[in-house]
Amino acid sequence: MVRSLLSRILSLSVSLVVASMVIFLMLQAVPGDPAAFMLGLNAQPDTIAALRADLGLEGSLGQRYLTWVKGMLAGDFGQSYTYRVPVADLVVDRIGVSAPLAVYALILSVVLAVPIGLIAASRRGGAADWGMMGATQLGIAIPNFWFAMLLVLVFAVKLRWVSAGGFPGWSDPLAAIKALTLPAIALALPQASILARVLRSAVLDTLDQDYIRTARAKGLSQRATVVRHALRNAAIPVLTILGLQFSFLLAGAIIIENVFFLPGLGRLIFQGITQRDLIVVQSVTMLLVFAVICVTFLVELTYLLADPRLRRR
């Protein structure tokens, strides 16, 4: 157990280091001088020089990389050129919108998917199964940002239940949650559809196993068999998907934030791109990738809990 944990932590660190190198090299690969690129054609040489210093562009590639990584480890993500404030401050503000949105959507999608998947699996081939699986097909096919637009159209424009976008801040938690509800629904729908389908087929797969027959021969009812023997074994593929979904949710959140004008990481990153604020792009992508890698790691840890066979090794 301890050994497999250690080896996973090691591979987590390696992933993080390699990911940071990839991001760093990509943004250093900008043709020409990044500082000149960011400032556009009419920049003064001394402004460029100042920005070069700001960006940490002095010194060799290796040195610059180390400076960047050291800074990040100390919580210093550098200075945003356009905002003239530390990137870290910008990011902290924006995470307060993006992270709750992703978590909200994740919870919604699990809450929706679990009952649908289980009911469909237990009524395999029945009308409920057909209906639910048809609905999830549709759910997967709908682009979440279009669904978000439809939600805005119906609930904000026509019914006027909620405002069409914007975010009031967390000083009024209820209003904040209300503002995040439509975006979360839009994000959750396709993910819930995928999750429900995966759960259904994982449960059906485990129901084909020999130990399910054993359980039935012991005198367990069909329902008890599913609950006690199929669910935990079906959990592994479901957890895998859930882990992957987190990265989709983060990415999806970037887009959905645009539909609802939410001041999250997504808006920040797009502003960074249009304003050529590369240091913002670099730090925020690193943050996103960091989050995804950590979630993947957590998912692997839950495998260890779910499946005793993996604890050896």
């Binding site: 990839v22 943004l27 990265s247 989709f248 983060l250 887009i255 791109i273 990738v289």
Partner: peptide, 16 residues
């Protein structure tokens, strides 16, 4: 490792 970069993030990097 590639899975850790959702396609949108890759697109953002490339576009940037």
């Amino acid at each position: 490792l590639i899975f850790a970069f959702p396609s949108l993030v890759i697109a953002i990097l490339i576009t940037a």
